[in-house]
Simulated assay, not measured.
Amino acid sequence: MSTTTFTITEPQPQSRIVKHLPVAEDTPELVKDIHVIPSFTEKEAERLWAKQHMVGAFRIFAKFGYNDGAGGHISLRDPVRPDCFWINPYAVHFKLLKVSDLILVDEDGKPLTQTQHKVNTAGFMIHAALHKARPDINAAAHCHSPYGRAWSAFGRPIEMLNQDCCMFYDDLSVYEGFGGVVLAKEEGERIAQALGPTRKNVILQNHGILTAGGTVDEAAAFFIALEQACQAQLLAEAAAANGIAKKFVGENEAKFTKEGSGSPAVMFMQFKPEYDLLLHETGGDFLA
């Protein structure tokens, strides 16, 4: 029996930025500085690395069942040209995407890379507005995932029901003005306004969920976590409807937990196990 060996290569960061909460002096060295975000000295290397992780996020979203026909999109601000961003081609299944399929567009929607595909109009309108309004946001993800879509029907934020929900303490908005499919610039701008100046996550009423981050890894990890939080909320609501009272995490505890479990570096590391597993399962076929 013949076997095929895959060699997976990624750009290697030249240095690392370490971000973590203060730790006690007696904390073992083994568990110090465990949350890291790679940093690059070469923008071209950072671009390739980020695009690989972007396509990895699409593949993982497909694996989790977030793909929904031609809908759904992730954007990535280009490290080389920050006024432009990468986006997925329209009507290509997330599971089939490769790095070479991504399209670089300018702020007017003009493709800057050769492609045989189109760009999702709604996707462009949403992401262009977000990247323009929030220079700190380098990536954003929006898909019509099942639980996020179901909970969005209530037009309410999730509650602090458990430790994982605390990732979204004071970091989640609700956009109440559903205006149909986002085909106009103004609708994208209203979604960006709902997100506000600092928050990275928003529930789009009657639509679904959208998450963002300084890295595509952070945005993807927030999306997965928010989808799971919406699932937990729906289950809790069903139990509460049968007379079981909900208990909530206190505000001080929720704030403290957010600082330890919902920071950019922690969310980056939350995505890492899924990305590493994807590399193992696929042999890195999406890196081309």
Rank of each mutant, 00 (worst) to 15 (best):
L210A: 13
F223I: 09
G188R: 04
Q12E: 12
M267V: 00
G196S: 07
G196I: 08
P146Q: 08
S263L: 03
T5I: 15
P11Q: 10
E274L: 14
A220D: 09
F85H: 05
I137G: 00
A57F: 01
L278T: 12
D170V: 04
T198A: 10
K255N: 12
K246T: 14
V23A: 15
D78L: 04
N201D: 13
N201G: 13
V80I: 12
T4N: 09
E281D: 15
M125W: 02
L76I: 09
Q163W: 09
N138F: 04
F58L: 12
D217P: 03
I126H: 01
V80M: 08
H142T: 14
G196D: 11
D164F: 11
M54S: 03
V18F: 06
A91F: 07
C166N: 06
F222D: 09
G188K: 02
N206S: 11
K51N: 11
D217L: 07
S145F: 04
L234C: 02
G283Q: 13
C143H: 15
T41P: 00
A254G: 12
Q193Y: 05
V55N: 09
F256H: 12
E159A: 15
A194R: 03
A24L: 13
W49T: 01
H117Q: 14
I209L: 05
L172T: 13
A150H: 08
K19W: 09
A236R: 10
R47E: 02
T115C: 08
L96A: 08
P135W: 03
R16A: 03
K110D: 10
G243P: 01
A232P: 02
L278G: 08
G208A: 11
H144T: 11
T41Q: 11
L287P: 03
I224T: 05
F256P: 01
A236S: 15
T4S: 06
V174E: 06
G180M: 13
P82Q: 12
T198H: 11
A70C: 10
P38S: 00
D33P: 03
L161A: 05
E237L: 14
P89L: 06
A225F: 00
H35G: 01
L96W: 06
R149N: 10
